[in-house]
Write a protein that binds this DNA or RNA. Structure first.
Lengths: 104, 104
DNA sequence: CGTGTAAGGAATTCTGACACG
DNA sequence: CGTGTAAGGAATTCTGACACG
């Protein structure tokens, strides 16, 4: 996993980076749009990917789209990505079945 | 600037990532080995690059190298990098002087 | 529905200092 | 020199709730 996906940024910094209030950021979590991790003490930790996603969410909110709809879009995207990954794995499986493994 | 160099990680998370105590991390700053930014409220913010550097520092400390020496090494590295960059810029300047600029 | 806010508490971070070796 | 620690204070974050629209 790259730095982009490591959850290390606290909500205050995320707020600075995105321009969103803490309240909004927590609300979008409540609505299942974003999924931070937690420190031992319970503080939220976000990744740069999360920050990017929050900015996309902010754009859609400005367009008057409801969190419910945004959530559905995100789930669809996620499903597409998952399928894509599966396809790749199955293809690799075919390749391995036909050619087997070799020592370098 | 890439995500790797954005200063966004608070000291607690850096501590988790590096295994170093807060005390050590702050001490290495005092000794000019590391240069975090600050939030408006005064909390330190580090980048992933800083985290990597701290791990290198930790290794050298384990080898019994003093902060003074580590600092000198870091300054040398920095100088090397700066010179490298300068060379590139001057070369590009030569190229531009000889061939001029063109519209695509 | 989306967001601001005051409330009270807990976790986080900061600095300067003393201790030890 | 490098690091732990107790001290006191300030900044940060958390949750649940009330308010408004």
């Amino acid at each position: 996993m790259s730095y982009k996906d490591k959850k290390v940024i606290t909500i205050g910094v995320v707020s600075e980076l995105t321009g969103l209030t803490d309240r909004k950021i927590r609300y979008y979590e409540e609505k299942k749009l974003i999924f931070p991790e937690r420190t031992a003490g319970g503080s939220r930790k976000y990744s740069f990917s999360d920050v990017e996603l929050l900015m996309k969410i902010a754009d859609k909110m400005e367009d008057g789209i409801q969190t419910r709809e945004i959530r559905q879009e995100l789930v669809k995207e996620q499903n597409r990505a998952t399928k894509e990954e599966l396809r790749k794995k199955m293809l690799q499986g075919q390749i391995n079945a036909h050619f087997g493994f070799r020592k370098p």
